[in-house]
Design a protein around this nucleic acid. Structure first.
Length: 128
DNA sequence: AACATGACGTATT
DNA sequence: TAATACGCCATGT
């Protein structure tokens, strides 16, 4: 079992709340596994959690996530690379800060260059 | 059962 | 790139 999964499992067992959905736990595990400095879209998180077409559920899972999990929620963006929160809102600003703090380029509009299929492939193939 | 609401996605213009 | 429209899916009324 991946470390991130174990952490989520342990903590979410610890925290007793209204019977946390197993789907939420899988989503949390995927988010916990996002490497610092990289980002994922809501839809991609859903797919990796085995829940295709359930991007909105990822949003729910994030809202419901216990603080104790300390998920890297700031690494989850919309599919077009924009921050999901309303521009200028506190959450929006917080997310910008946290992303920049780990080296992610964020435009003033709150947009991040998302990895394209091509760029990811280049990463793999051109790596020395 | 019907409708509104979201930290969403995709296609189209 | 931006605006719009529509699709999707869980929840709450």
């Amino acid at each position: 079992m991946p470390i991130a999964c174990a952490a989520v499992a342990e903590i979410s067992n610890d925290i007793e709340l209204p019977a946390v959905s197993p789907a939420f736990e899988r989503i949390w595990a995927v988010i916990a596994a996002i490497a610092p400095g990289s980002v994922l879209s809501y839809g991609e998180v859903a797919r990796r959690a085995g829940l295709p077409r359930r991007a909105r559920m990822v949003a729910q899972a994030l809202r419901a996530a216990p603080d104790a999990l300390e998920l890297p929620w700031h690494r989850v963006l919309r599919a077009d690379g924009r921050i999901a929160f309303a521009p200028g809102s506190d959450d929006f600003v917080r997310q910008c800060r946290r992303l920049r703090a780990e080296g992610v380029e964020v435009t003033d509009n709150g947009r991040v260059r998302m990895p394209t299929a091509a760029s990811s492939l280049d990463e793999l193939l051109w790596r020395p």
